[in-house]
């Protein structure tokens, strides 16, 4: 069997599992799967900013929060779901664009600090500006959306809704990274000076990478709010940003499917480990550390290396065979 056939079979199996497996799960399992889909979208956004464009952001969790709050506030005011969703994406895109400006001035770890400050500020605004966000008490009383007469109220319905959103987001990402923009982002990461000399408008693309990545975070947050049906500041601390960063790195930064794997480890693994009771987070942290030590470029990075190594081996074997053949002549 050729490699592409294996890959295709594998892909079909995964997609089939994502569609049919949740039918066999209880409501809790379905909820966790929905959460995985939502976090994957947020991690995909961060993967664009970090993995493709090479900009370290510690604010992705804050954008998820911005999206969630926009939807929760507007839905409570009676706007339905779709308009708030759109507004959430627009707002996070705009704020992401603005946050990108420091990225033009400071680089590498300093950029991480600016985004960290932003993240802290956003949390405090959620908590303190009670007139808008209801502060620490949180916003409640909005429903899950419906479309074309189909309600997504039940857990399994909402799961398919988030899965649809994930497919949409993935399709967008797949298009984006293959487009000239995507190639410009990578050029930016690999060598900004060279990219500039090749005529890539690095300013615009840096801002764009930030803005699109942030808007994906906002999109994810807009789905998070109706999943939980409650929004309060506590989930959107720096911890969420760091967690998303971990998902991207562990899955394989700069790989298209990295966030899918990373979110599976960040969201599903702790749940699987719950049988260990009080020790589950210890085991989880240990697992992540060992994983990173063994695969510092992420799971997909290692797989790629393995494939590359195999190809080299195969090639040198072929060369050896060829030269052996030559000897005989």
């Amino acid at each position: 069997m050729s490699r592409s056939v294996i890959l295709k079979t594998f892909g079909v199996l995964i997609v089939g599992a994502l569609i049919f497996l949740p039918l066999t799960l209880n409501r809790y399992g379905i909820y966790i799967m929905s959460l995985w889909a939502i976090m994957t979208i947020a991690a995909m956004g961060l993967n664009l900013t970090l993995g493709y464009a090479g900009q370290v952001s510690l604010a992705q969790g804050a954008f998820v929060g911005l999206g969630a709050y926009t939807v929760a506030i507007m839905m409570s005011a009676g706007f339905g779901f779709w308009l708030p969703l759109l507004i959430a994406i627009v707002i996070t895109f705009a704020v992401g664009w603005l946050l990108g400006y420091p990225a033009l001035r400071v680089q590498h770890h300093y950029l991480a600090f600016v985004t960290l400050a932003f993240s802290t500020l956003v949390f405090l605004v959620f908590r303190n500006e009670e007139w808008l966000t209801k502060g620490i008490y949180g916003i409640m009383g909005f429903k899950r959306p419906s479309a074309f007469g189909v309600s997504f109220q039940k857990p399994i319905e909402f799961y398919y809704f988030t899965l649809g959103a994930l497919v949409l987001a993935s399709a967008f990402m797949a298009w984006l990274v293959r487009s000239p923009w995507g190639r410009a982002f990578v050029a930016l990461r690999e060598n900004p000076v060279r990219a500039l000399s090749l005529g890539v408008d690095t300013r615009r693309y840096t801002l764009m990478a930030f803005a699109i990545g942030s808007a994906m975070g906002g999109f994810s947050g807009a789905l998070y709010a109706p999943l939980v049906e409650f929004v309060d500041p506590t989930p959107f601390t720096l911890a969420l940003s760091l967690n998303l960063l971990m998902m991207v790195i562990v899955g394989g930064s700069g790989f298209f499917f990295g966030p899918f794997l990373g979110a599976a480890i960040g969201v599903l693994l702790p749940e699987w480990l719950r049988f260990a009771h009080g020790w589950y987070l210890i085991i989880y942290a240990l697992f992540v550390m060992i994983l990173l030590i063994k695969t510092p470029t992420g799971i997909l990075g290692i797989i790629e290396n393995m494939i590359a190594a195999r190809k080299t081996r195969a090639a040198s074997a072929a060369r050896a065979a060829a030269s052996a053949g030559l000897d005989k002549v």
Partner: peptide, 18 residues
Amino acid sequence: GVLPLAICTMALSIFLKE
């Protein structure tokens, strides 16, 4: 590089706390 190690120390902080 810097990031994988930084993420690893994040996991370490969870490990130590827990």
